[in-house]
């Protein structure tokens, strides 16, 4: 069964300043959950804490009703895959080896690969369109290729939960959609829980089932895209004027930031 993530009163401090401040929310099993918010709002820190990368000062993170602390490192790695924002640049191994390394939590201490591991790694490379890169070194890849390789690695880790930190930032338009479609497919086929930090509000609106908007380490609001992405919330969260309407494609909002030269068209804010 796919585990759910339950976060209660989570506080994380850097040098005594809370970066994540008394946060409580729940991510349901099999959900496509997207965390949005302005720069420095604590999204990445929150994601790292959920991945078990960094300790927290207060509160609890429950994975399937069991505290994250109580998981052994390897057990956690078999439950949660994590794709960080800053991917390693210098890494002497080939793409194929990197994707195979994703199998480590399921292997013995020496990481000996069996046939099954190879098959899973190969599938992960096929669906991320990285199989043709298999023999290349990581340092020879473009930013977008590298991003897809590390997503392939996360998929080959074969976990019920995948955490991704701004996975579309380095990708072009076609690969952005392809990446998000892929995550949606994983969710549909394997009931994988997808938790993503994103700066792209429109992608979040298109794919997210539930969104969490953060600011200053606190929750601004959480709910469906239609509930979260109102112009009131966005203007409060991002301190900028936006126009929100319905997407022509379907039942989700479309967010357009308003450039300065069109501000006169907007209804004035009353002070």
């Amino acid at each position: 069964m796919t585990p759910s993530i339950d976060i209660r009163n989570l506080t994380i401090r850097y040098n005594h300043t809370p970066v994540v401040d008394d946060l409580s929310f729940r991510i349901n099993a099999g959900e496509f959950f997207i965390i949005i918010g302005p720069n420095g709002s604590g999204k990445t820190t929150l994601l790292k804490a959920v991945a078990g990368m960094i300790p927290h000062d207060h509160g609890t993170i429950l994975l399937n009703d069991r505290s994250l602390h109580r998981y052994r490192r390897k057990e956690l790695a078999a439950s949660i895959a994590y794709v960080p924002q800053n991917l390693p640049l210098e890494f002497p191994f080939t793409v194929g080896e990197v994707v195979l390394m994703g199998r480590s939590p399921h292997q013995g201490i020496l990481g000996m690969e069996g046939e099954a591991d190879r098959r899973i790694a190969r599938e992960a490379m096929e669906i991320t369109e990285t199989l043709h890169l298999a023999a290349r070194k990581i340092e020879q890849l473009s930013g977008g290729e590298r991003q897809r390789v590390f997503i392939a690695r996360a998929i080959s880790q074969d976990t019920p939960i995948i955490l991704l930190d701004e996975p579309t930032a380095a990708l072009d338009l076609a690969h952005q959609i392809q990446m998000m479609d892929l995550m949606e497919r994983l969710k549909a086929e394997k009931q994988t829980t997808i938790v993503m930090v994103s700066h792209d509000i429109n992608l979040a609106a298109m794919y997210g089932e539930r969104l969490l908007m953060m600011k200053g380490g606190k929750v601004v609001t959480t709910g469906t895209p239609a509930e979260v992405l109102t112009f009131e919330n966005l203007e409060a969260g991002y301190d900028c004027v936006v126009l929100v309407d319905q997407s022509p494609m379907g039942d989700f909002p479309r967010v357009s930031p308003v450039p300065n030269r069109y501000l006169y068209l907007m209804p004035r804010k009353t002070k």
């Binding site: 790292k48 990368m53 490192r73 390897k74 960080p84 390693p88 994703g102 480590s104 939590p105």
Partner: peptide, 17 residues
């Protein structure tokens, strides 16, 4: 093998167990 994973950085190594 842990040394191999460590080359990917501490975070990545951690996330792979």
């Amino acid at each position: 093998h842990a040394m191999n994973l460590l080359l990917m950085g501490k975070e990545m190594a951690k996330s792979m167990g």
